[in-house]
């Protein structure tokens, strides 16, 4: 049969964002493994469609393959980003695992084919808070204005802080002027590229969630592919998931060094406070997922997660 060409759109322009490299890596893998069978053509990123509209556009068949942050799916596939809490080295367990099939099922119900969630090793390349006030405990967030993403808003609210939504382009000014006191960012994802190290005093070295990027496909398009093409895509994803930890470790290292060189202080919490912080982070996010899934599904996810340990 003829070679299939899949059109890909992503949340961030290729070559711009380290997390976006997951999309690039996946595309390279497919184009190498899939010669004569399946190829990916890159159409663009936020210039082509606003990032938060991309998931629905994928469902509508405007393009075929997507890369971005798992929590962009929050509106379309509720709980589709639950692998943010995964204790597995590969967040979704990787193609062939039970957890992977569960996640694929979640997306399939909404007209999407989940291809994979790639992230750093646990605790590497994840979400961190950076602030302009010293922090020794989660209690210090109380009453503070914190710029959040949809994923990190739960912990801020649970800690009694005020969550503020701002696009990355406004973070610099907001921090500099004190409109917000801190913000969350997956540090490995080019923190210093935005110049934030110049207006931020502290990074709290308390990793939260898995971060990373995910790949998804339009379900009809996936179903229409030959088994050979599907296998190539899954193989490409598995390779990307294997490649990602090293990539994130390298970026995190690079970023934290640059941040410190710029005079930022990296705060480490006491063991006890780190434990408390982690509990609030994890519990508040679980509490959110409990509003989405029924008790049975929650039990199923927890069992699949526990299988990792």
């Amino acid at each position: 049969s003829a070679q299939e060409t899949l059109r890909m759109v992503g949340a961030w322009a290729l070559g711009f964002s380290p997390t976006g490299e997951i999309g690039q890596n996946f595309m390279d893998n497919v184009n190498r493994l899939g010669e004569g069978v399946v190829q990916i053509e890159y159409l663009g990123a936020d210039d082509v469609l606003p990032p938060f509209d991309q998931p629905e556009a994928l469902v509508n068949g405007v393009f075929d393959v997507w890369y971005g942050a798992p929590n962009y799916w929050a509106g379309v596939v509720p709980g589709g980003d639950i692998t943010e809490l995964s204790p597995h080295p590969v967040p979704d367990g990787g193609p062939g695992s039970e957890l992977y099939d569960f996640i694929v099922g979640l997306y399939e119900a909404r007209g999407v084919r989940h291809i994979g969630h790639a992230a750093g090793d646990i605790g590497v390349g994840v979400h961190y808070f950076s602030t302009n006030f010293p922090v020794t405990s989660i209690d210090d967030l109380e009453g503070r204005q914190m710029r959040v993403t949809p994923l990190t808003r739960h912990i801020v609210q649970a800690a009694g802080g005020e969550s503020v939504t701002l696009p990355p382009s406004e973070v610099y000014l907001a921090m500099d002027r004190g409109t917000v006191d801190g913000f969350s960012w997956p540090v490995a994802d080019g923190f210093t590229r935005y110049g934030w190290q110049d207006v931020t005093d502290y990074m709290i070295d308390q990793p939260m969630y898995r971060s990373g990027g995910s790949i998804a496909m339009n379900l009809d398009r996936w179903n229409g592919l030959s088994e050979e093409a599907q296998d190539i895509l899954l193989q490409a994803m598995a390779e990307t998931q294997e490649w990602t930890p090293g990539w994130f470790a390298q970026n995190l290292e690079e970023q934290t060094t640059l941040m410190q060189e710029a005079g930022m202080e990296i705060l480490t919490l006491s063991e006890e406070e780190a434990e408390r912080w982690n509990t609030v982070a994890v519990d508040s996010l679980w509490a959110y997922y409990e509003t989405i899934f029924d008790a049975e599904q929650i039990a199923e996810v927890r069992a699949l997660f526990d299988a990792a340990e």
């Binding site: 469609l49 606003p50 938060f52 509209d53 629905e56 556009a57 509508n60 068949g61 405007v62």
Partner: peptide
Amino acid sequence: LWGGFNGFNQLILSIDS
């Protein structure tokens, strides 16, 4: 460009966005 009539759904979303 956006896949015939399917794309119109996307157009409505983009009006909102």
